[in-house]
Amino acid sequence: MSKLKTKESIIDSDIKRKYKLQAEGVKVFYDDFMAIKGIDMSIKANKVTAFIGPSGCGKSTFLRLFNRMNDYVDGFRMEGKITIDGGNIYKKKINVEQLRKQVGMVFQKPNPFPKSIFENVAYGLKIQGIKDKRFLQEKVEESLKQVALWDEVKDGLNKSALALSGGQQQRLCIARTLAVEPSVILMDEPTSALDPLSTAKIEELIYELKKEYTIVIVTHNMQQASRVSDYTAFFYMGELIEYDQTKKIFTNPEKQQTENYITGRFG
């Protein structure tokens, strides 16, 4: 009996390692409107998972469940269970600030604070109470290097972040997210406001970052989903229609609805 228990716990920890994020029977309501209609989904660690679907399909709502960003929306209510590394993040005693440190987010439009480049990246660490200047400097440099922005800004760390280009600002926002050492990065259309060159830089960055982080990205750009993601989930009217390896979704999807969407015949 004890042997069996050991086996089960090994299997259990394997699943936790394999799947970073899991949703079980998740329903989301905004007052009476059901935005997510019962979704089960497991997202693999150190992979890029893309959420695609027409506007209003629930993909951004679903994404924001993983760091409880919907909590602030009026009338929001959730049923079901969301876990990160097996732990329920909607438990009453959960520390939401700690959760958001673990699950960083990058938004559609770059949103640097009206502060210097250095202060932007160090911001998260400072509000955690870290004052050690040397540590902060090292962390800022490390984060800016991770997003390949260091060489471009190292001589002007005290300049305003708002003076950077759109693409640089978005990489700065990613650096700001990385500085607090999350394990998951959620990206909500991170390149929709950027030019093709800046988009390419962010996509290369996503590819590099997945070695250390689990990344979930919402995108309306089909080519981007096929280029950067390992797995793709297609949402429609609050339901998860199909979820599979990206190479399968974009060559031979199982569902006709998915095929119609990715080939642009439906939206």
Partner: peptide, 9 residues
Amino acid sequence: HNPVASDLR
């Protein structure tokens, strides 16, 4: 057109 799925095939 960057075709995918059945269009690409």
